[in-house]
């Protein structure tokens, strides 16, 4: 297994290189560069000034040179500066990361807290009314554009009933609020984004959990457990649940890119200044350093997530032999 881990880790290097190469190339294939994007609104900028700016960004160099410059800097964990305001990309990301992370971790907790019990119940009561209802919910949750759900909730809870704020992460005027008041203000702003982000995951996870449980309940050791006279609760919650939970670990790792993609749209709808919004802006203003600074670590996280999931899986289940 140690050998396997080392092999996997080494294999990640070419994949990561591939990711950087691919995203770098397609980003630079887009017409216009940072200089053009910045000068779009100042028609007066002379060709000379434009050229100077291009030089400043290194955009006058051939593409492969730009790539290697970027790569060597990246390896020393230097993500470069944002073209837009000259701030360090790392600082920009660290500034945006907490809010995106908060929303996603909160919604993940909501998802797990609801999806696991639902999955268990609909598996142990297969084809019951509850199972049918959750199946319906799963399909609807899957088939719905989540930004649409966001719109509906904004209208219903925000506009009609006025119980939650409809955008941003805090009220404009925080003066006169105690620390507790500020926290509540923030929580209020987070309710809708967290709720909406949770719906998609909820559908997927509860279905996944249900299928895992059904699969496990068919196994011989469950029959054995029943045959030796254990109560149904002990069979379900001790023997089956543990085994059914394991595969859930693996899809957590695979969820990272989806989370980032989902955040991009969600943050756009709710006007949240997070990572998704940053990436969105970066791609459009051709702010290569910022976009790469978000993408590559995200891709790395995905790979690490997968890797840890595989390893964790092998630890949890001794029958799994990794080669």
């Amino acid at each position: 297994m140690l050998l396997y881990s080392i092999k996997r880790l080494f294999l990640m290097v070419p994949i990561l290189l591939g990711i950087t190469l691919l995203s770098f190339t397609i980003m630079h294939m887009a017409p216009g560069g940072p200089a053009e994007a910045q000068m779009e609104f100042s028609a007066k900028a002379s060709a000379e000034a434009r050229e100077r700016l291009r030089k400043l960004y290194g955009a006058d160099q051939p593409l492969h040179k730009q790539y290697f410059t970027w790569l060597t800097k990246f390896m020393t964990l230097d993500f470069g500066e944002a073209f837009a305001d000259g701030k360090k990309v790392k600082d920009k990301i660290l500034e945006r990361l907490p809010i995106t992370l908060t929303i996603n971790l909160l919604s993940l907790s909501v998802v797990l807290a609801i999806a696991i019990p639902i999955g268990i119940l609909s598996a142990t009561h297969q084809y019951s009314l509850l199972d049918r209802l959750t199946t319906l919910f799963v399909f609807v949750g899957y088939s719905m554009p989540h930004f649409w759900l966001a719109l509906l909730l904004i209208y219903l809870l925000g506009v009609q009933w006025g119980i939650v704020p409809i955008s941003g992460i805090q009220s404009l005027d925080l003066t006169g609020l105690s620390a507790w008041g500020r926290l509540m203000d923030k929580a209020n702003h987070l309710i809708l984004p967290v709720l909406v982000s949770a719906v998609g995951g909820l559908a997927g996870f509860s279905r996944y959990m249900r299928n895992n449980m059904l699969e496990v309940m068919r196994q011989d050791y469950i029959r054995t457990a029943r045959a030796k006279g254990l109560s149904e609760n002990a069979v379900v919650y001790k023997h089956a649940l543990r085994n059914a939970l394991m595969p859930v670990i693996t899809i957590l790792g695979l969820a990272v890119p989806g989370v980032i993609g989902g955040s991009a749209i969600m943050e756009q709808v709710f006007g949240i200044p997070g990572m998704g919004q940053l990436m969105f802006q970066a791609v459009f203003s051709r702010d290569y350093n910022v976009a790469m600074g978000i993408l590559v670590p995200a891709a790395l996280l995905t790979m690490l997530g997968n890797f840890l999931a595989d390893i964790g899986y092998a630890f949890a289940d001794p029958r799994v032999r990794l080669r």
Partner: peptide
């Protein structure tokens, strides 16, 4: 590689 990149990014670019 393709699966590690958020689809929305690829699409945007």
């Amino acid at each position: 590689i393709m699966l590690s990149l958020p689809t929305i990014f690829l699409v945007l670019v």
